[in-house]
Lab assay of single mutants.
Amino acid sequence: MEVRTIKVFTTVDNINLHTQVVDMSMTYGQQFGPTYLDGADVTKIKPHNSHEGKTFYVLPNDDTLRVEAFEYYHTTDPSFLGRYMSALNHTKKWKYPQVNGLTSIKWADNNCYLATALLTLQQIELKFNPPALQDAYYRARAGEAANFCALILAYCNKTVGELGDVRETMSYLFQHANLDSCKRVLNVVCKTCGQQQTTLKGVEAVMYMGTLSYEQFKKGVQIPCTCGKQATKYLVQQESPFVMMSAPPAQYELKHGTFTCASEYTGNYQCGHYKHITSKETLYCIDGALLTKSSEYKGPITDVFYKENSYTTTIK
């Protein structure tokens, strides 16, 4: 009895394709271990004539594949690729409408935090270190965002349907971005203890939790000093293409032309909904596939993004 075979390709990165001759009487799992086709788990399936010449994702289970996976995804987590594939199996079914010149995501599976993050990423200057993220990001900007969303979920250790947080998501993504040249110098002034300067680099240099107003941050924000008295913390120097200011959701007025974009969060910790506000020729609110415009805006804002380049204080 002759062994019926077909020729397929296996890959971990969709760049390096490895030619395989597979036995049609055995499952993919018996031949390769966990195997995925377009995100779908085909591990328990036997090869079919229609699979001839198709590319299958496999887990990096030998040295060659491990090197290829690390170079593309910059992670050695053995569960990463499987999590990416199972997320992709959902995100490829989502709709990605162009809204006001940006790629958004039609609401499904509690994905409003991903839509808000995706919209924000198209408006701030950011370059990702893992080629996987950078490639998928370019495709997302062009309207094909399924891979990018699935990668975000995998890097953030999230599953489809789980509630997510924009600030946490951005923080994970910033860790995989090139923020080497970003720098922030802060000064804390206390009447009792004097003053202390701190220099922050990388992710810490672009994120701040405690106030939404970048102007206020430049002037000074009140913080408790270690001595128990009130101290003032203010920005001395900022070198970065953008800054992200966050605070627990509270009524906040966004003035046209003073910011790049913002995240609105309605609801409580267990259950809520994100919308995205962007400042173009007027203010726009993007909620999944829905767009509304207004000249002014007041609502429960939790993150505001500002364009920056270089700032030095005039406070002496």
Rank of each mutant, 00 (worst) to 15 (best):
L179E: 04
G39A: 15
T312W: 08
H48K: 12
T211P: 01
Q122M: 05
N110F: 03
A40K: 14
E264Q: 05
K7N: 12
D135P: 02
I301Y: 01
T314W: 10
A262T: 01
H273I: 01
Q30I: 14
T76E: 15
V67G: 10
I15D: 06
M245K: 03
Y155N: 02
K127P: 09
E2W: 08
N100G: 07
Y113N: 02
C149S: 07
M170H: 03
F174S: 02
C227W: 02
V188C: 12
Y138M: 12
T103L: 06
K255V: 09
E162N: 04
S294K: 13
M24C: 12
Q175R: 15
S263K: 01
S171R: 15
G288S: 01
C225L: 01
T64L: 13
A69S: 12
H18E: 13
V188F: 08
E125P: 13
K46A: 13
F174Y: 06
T313A: 10
S86A: 11
Y96R: 04
N147H: 09
Y274G: 00
A132I: 03
G228T: 04
L235V: 10
L119W: 01
L121E: 03
T75F: 05
E71C: 10
Y311Q: 08
Y208S: 08
A289C: 07
F80S: 04
H48V: 12
E52Y: 11
D38C: 11
K54G: 10
T103P: 02
V236D: 04
Y137I: 10
T266L: 07
W107T: 02
F80N: 03
A231F: 01
G82C: 14
G143P: 03
E253L: 15
A231G: 06
N16C: 08
F217D: 01
Y208Q: 05
P131K: 09
Y72D: 10
V21S: 12
G299T: 00
N147F: 07
S213Q: 05
L200P: 03
L119A: 04
Q31R: 12
R167E: 03
N111T: 01
E162I: 00
F56R: 04
S295M: 11
F174A: 03
F70E: 09
E125D: 14
L186Q: 15
P34W: 14
M244T: 01
K7V: 08
R139S: 13
C182G: 04
Y138V: 13
C227Y: 01
F128T: 02
P60D: 10
V8C: 13
N187M: 11
T282V: 11
G257I: 00
Q196M: 13
T55N: 08
N16L: 09
M244H: 02
T5Y: 13
V243W: 02
A150P: 02
G82N: 08
G228S: 04
I45V: 14
T211A: 12
E253R: 12
K316T: 15
T76P: 12
Y208N: 07
K46P: 14
Y172H: 08
V236E: 06
A150E: 04
V203F: 15
T19R: 15
M207E: 04
N14A: 07
A69N: 07
K46S: 14
N14K: 11
H256W: 14
N178R: 09
Y172D: 09
C193R: 03
F80A: 03
N14R: 08
P97F: 07
K293L: 10
V166Y: 05
R167N: 03
Y113V: 04
I286G: 01
S246T: 02
L65H: 10
T260I: 15
D303N: 00
N61V: 14
T19E: 08
L102R: 04
T159R: 14
P97M: 07
V203M: 10
A177T: 08
K191L: 09
R141T: 12
P300C: 14
G267V: 05
I286C: 01
P300S: 15
R141V: 12
M170V: 07
T91M: 04
Y214D: 02
E204P: 08
L153Y: 11
V3A: 13
K54A: 15
V99N: 06
M26K: 08
T226P: 14
G210P: 04
S86I: 12
R139Y: 11
V67E: 15
A145I: 03
Q195V: 12
F128N: 02
L163S: 07
F9I: 12
T10R: 10
S263N: 14
V12E: 10
T11M: 06
V221Q: 07
L283N: 02
T266Y: 09
A146P: 06
K44A: 06
K316P: 09
W94S: 04
G29E: 08
M170T: 02
T313L: 11
T282N: 08
G267N: 05
E144F: 10
K201P: 02
C149K: 02
G272D: 00
Q216V: 09
F70M: 15
L119N: 05
T192L: 12
Q216H: 10
K106P: 02
F56E: 04
I286H: 04
D23T: 15
E68Y: 08
C182T: 05
P130Y: 02
V166T: 06
Q123R: 01
T27S: 07
T76H: 13
E125Y: 06
Y252E: 04
Q98I: 12
I45S: 14
F80K: 03
K201S: 13
A231P: 00
P224R: 13
N178E: 08
R141C: 15
N111D: 02
P249V: 06
H90D: 08
Y84E: 03
I15H: 09
E144P: 05
M207Q: 09
E215D: 12
Y137A: 08
C225E: 00
Q222F: 14
V185Q: 07
K218W: 06
A247T: 06
Y269P: 15
L121R: 03
D180C: 07
A87P: 00
G164W: 03
P249A: 01
N16F: 07
T232E: 08
A250M: 15
I223K: 06
K44S: 13
V99T: 07
T292S: 14
Y284E: 08
S79N: 06
E264T: 05
D287V: 00
Q230F: 15
H276T: 02
M170K: 02
N129E: 15
